[in-house]
Design a binder for these strands. Sequence first.
DNA 1: TCGGATTTTCAGAAATTTCTGAAAACCCAG
DNA 2: CTGGGTTTTCAGAAATTTCTGAAAATCCGA
Lengths: 192, 192
Amino acid sequence: MQLPPLVQTFVLHFGEMGSRWGINRTVGQIYALLFVAERALNADEIVERLGLSRSNVSMGLKELQAWNLVRLQHVPGDRRDYFATPDDIWQIVRTLVEERKKREVDPTLTLLREILMQEPGSPEERHAQARLREMHDLFELFSGWYTDVRRLDTDRLVQLLSLGAKVQRILEVKDRLRLVPGRRRGSPTASD
Amino acid sequence: MQLPPLVQTFVLHFGEMGSRWGINRTVGQIYALLFVAERALNADEIVERLGLSRSNVSMGLKELQAWNLVRLQHVPGDRRDYFATPDDIWQIVRTLVEERKKREVDPTLTLLREILMQEPGSPEERHAQARLREMHDLFELFSGWYTDVRRLDTDRLVQLLSLGAKVQRILEVKDRLRLVPGRRRGSPTASD
DNA sequence: TCGGATTTTCAGAAATTTCTGAAAACCCAG
DNA sequence: CTGGGTTTTCAGAAATTTCTGAAAATCCGA
């Protein structure tokens, strides 16, 4: 592995972290390398920098492409494929969340719904269903929140995150307003 | 594996899902089983229901305890250990997030800070640092948001999630207020 | 302290995942 | 077409992770 020390530290750490998620170590390393690279890299450059076999890099890149985490680029007059991560880090976050939702949350929700359709054959099953309904509702809540929030443009999103729990105040106001009788429909927020 | 079909479906799915995260299949299965169980189970009951070896179950339970995901209980007059998941599903979510933060986000933030302290020795390293600063700031933002939001009681949290992107309206109001000249210090939110 | 019940440990076996080199497939300029 | 440069595939090798049985440790009532 022939890398500036600073980069190497990060690449190794990210590889380890990757293996704690579903991603394998080398895929994590490849991604880390591309993330900090000044320009798009081709497969041989990755091989050289990380000391992996050519075929391993090929498979790693294939996987990253399947996740939509790298973009394929071409350099004029060069037939090789070059790979890069999006410049906008928020785009990366969005892709990551989107893909994990697609692969993990959605199938789980489908399964839970199926289970909840079944007729329980015993008190034990009845209890299991009740428990799984709780889980289902939780996932639905998150899922709905996400499809909602995903639309926000990045500035708004950052604003919201920076606000943190201060948003709570708004809820308190909402509560107070709710106590006022005769309140009409609409958004009982600060805009009133 | 001797389980009601409905439970078995869930246990198997959850096991698979577990292995897509850092958790191994059997640990996932044990957790799933405890989650839907009507009462706390002892190790032998888990062995019997999931068809695993006694030692495997022992290690799985140890791991779940290390994650604070199961509580140890005792039945009067019985020397065996019984295990259960918290009844409150939100407690489970909180533990899960807390532990993952501790194991993944915090160490990464530490590493990123260390890297950012170093003096870049080349333009390549300078660029890598700039990129990693972006990542660092992103993690800080999430981390700060989380420490803030974690304090909210569950009702408020659910309220917030249900609200979804409608919270955006509040930001719009905030913007409008900011345009008003001569505004004094304090929180220019609904609470004014 | 003893003895039975229970849990934990751990070395090796089994299963799974990752990695590699060699060969095949692809792709385009000439 | 053809040929060289490039990427992909894939069977087996290597590495890692998971799982097991047997033995050791622990724990507690008598």
